[in-house]
Amino acid sequence: MMHDGAEGHTFKRFDGQLSNLHLMVVEMGQAVHQQVQDALTAVRTQDIQLAQKVLGRHQDIDRMEVRADAEIVEVIAQNAPLASDLRLVVAVSKSVGDLQKVGEEAARMAMLLEEIQLESAPPLMETLLAEVDRMGGSVLSHLDTAVGLFGQWDEEKALHVIAGHRQMDGDFQTELHRVMTCLLEESLDLKAAVRLVLVAKSLDRIIHHALNLAEYAMFEVYGGVAVRS
């Protein structure tokens, strides 16, 4: 690229602003990922303190969103981006919104913990917990991959994330079915079981946000939206 005079300077600065937007998604994505991971650990290890930490950090996530929004508005106002630049700004703006919602899910899971007391958990409950934990691992990996797309585009990984949500849909249904069966057998603590299902539902929503992120990234790169089926 040839830069001449004052214009060149503007363009360079704009380039910097745009890559900075990507960086914001990655940073916010990492923070949110940490929140989900800690919330899940808290659930698995019954760590109330860790859950409270997650809740305490929730405001930071919201602040990141506010800061990102301000930055995005500034970029639009100053540069009126078009073509691939426009798609980048739209993709980042939408991703930030989804990441904020993932943050909310993490906080929700942390709040649910108090009700899932497992001191004398029956073996069935253990199985359910292990299952939620497994789901959690898969969700974290998808979220990580989706956020990573904003650091380094990788079509194969994007498609992997987009395909992943279908499997999770199945997981959640299976989980729900299992809990229902247990409830019928009255072998479960009703309150704890419902809370676990709610955690599973949170994970289900998070995977959808990860899917959205992958679709936004794809929109940014190709200008089209992946077909969701």
């Binding site: 690229m1 040839m2 363009f11 078009l82 073509a83 798609r87």
Partner: peptide, 19 residues
């Protein structure tokens, strides 16, 4: 053309980058 041009040269021009 202004949101998703196909040719990289179009994209560069419309995005406002100098040649």
């Amino acid at each position: 053309m202004f949101t998703a041009p196909s040719h990289p040269l179009t994209d560069r021009f419309i995005s406002g980058y100098s040649e």
